[in-house]
């Protein structure tokens, strides 16, 4: 019974304590730090949320989606259209809901595709949405861009913090629930999972749509910081690729890894952009290539193998 008594299925009691402490520290941050730090932390939160939500579905199922930009962008446009009509928290929720509905439709139409076909289709679909919005704006409204009701950095920071806490908690509990196991089983043998009584279509579509909710809510929040948007800003394909890179960089199978990957790469991008504006993308690319080639398990994988090595060394000494 060892795997049961080692508590594999019980949450580590340190996790809630550490998590609460981190949330408390984050809540106090704007009071003690300068506005620039608050804005930069908001940016980190955004990437953590889209990385976690991407990895929650695509990590275990191995259905690699590159549609995050579509859900993020839909959130942004919801904010632009509804920002004047309702209070800010409601706008954020609405952005999430619209993305959720869109993802349900995308899921129904694409989740029967497998492997590369699924990936390419999600990318094609998000490009299609971008061009559709562009066409709509030019033909129907006669402009390209829009102004978004702006919100102060501090409320935006706290809104992102709430979304972040909800996303992390959700990923944590899903990972430990029967749905976490089901998602992994789908990634390893979808046919067998189906034969074990799991309604694989329902699991895939629902989880995919919920992850889109988080991306959409984040987009709605983010829009208020940009004030001006157009389809190529809102549906920038980088928002689809970044979560993939960040999750791989940190360690795709672990929430901690995803958080670290998103935080490190976001801060690194900020740093490179200010220090080396001309070589920013080049240096960024080289770092990613090196990590992917030499750290197959990401940063967390490196950490684990170091721990393992230390353990075997101490075993050999005794």
């Amino acid at each position: 019974m060892n795997s049961l008594s080692t508590g594999k299925y019980l949450p580590n009691p340190r996790i809630p304590v550490l998590f609460s402490a981190a949330v408390l520290a984050a809540a106090l941050l704007p009071l003690i730090m300068d506005p620039f730090t608050t804005i930069s932390a908001t940016n980190v939160f955004i990437y953590i949320v889209i990385t976690l939500s991407w990895a929650l579905f695509s990590g275990p199922t191995q259905y690699i989606s590159i549609a995050t930009a579509a859900f993020f962008g839909i959130g942004i446009y919801t904010s632009a259209l509804a920002g004047e009509l309702m209070p800010f928290p409601l706008v954020v929720c609405l952005g999430g809901v619209v993305s959720f509905v869109l993802a349900l439709l995308v899921g129904l139409s694409t989740l029967r595709l497998k492997g590369m076909y699924f990936t390419i289709f999600t990318f094609g679909l998000s490009e299609l949405i971008r061009h559709f919005v562009l066409w709509w704006e030019v033909v129907m409204t006669g402009t390209v861009g829009r102004w978004v009701v702006s919100v102060d950095p501090i409320p935006v920071y706290y809104t992102m913090l709430v979304i972040l806490v909800v996303t992390i908690s959700f990923c944590f509990f899903i990972g430990r629930s029967r749905y976490g196991l089901a998602l992994r089983s789908i990634g390893q043998s979808e046919e067998a999972a189906d034969h074990m009584g799991i309604n694989i279509t329902a699991v895939k579509i629902n989880v995919f749509a919920i992850t889109a909710f988080f991306a959409g809510a984040t987009g709605s929040t983010m829009a208020t910081r940009w004030t001006y948007i157009d389809p190529s800003i809102a549906f920038n394909p980088l928002f689809s690729f970044m979560p993939v890179l960040m999750a791989i960089f940190g360690g795709i199978g672990s929430i901690t890894g995803q958080i670290i990957g998103a935080a490190v790469l976001t801060l690194l991008a900020d740093l490179l952009l200010t220090e080396f504006p001309y070589y920013y993308m080049l240096i960024y690319g080289i770092i990613l290539v090196v990590v992917i080639l030499f750290l197959p398990g990401g940063i967390v994988g490196l950490w684990d193998s170091m721990k393992k090595r230390r353990r075997t060394e101490t075993n050999e000494n005794t």
Binding site: R178, L181, Q188, I198
Partner: peptide, 17 residues
């Protein structure tokens, strides 16, 4: 089989659904 899952998880999944 769900080859990266543990032996126990393979069986538990069926019970849980």
């Amino acid at each position: 089989l769900f080859s990266d899952m543990t032996v126990l998880e393979n069986v538990m999944l069926s019970c849980l659904f």
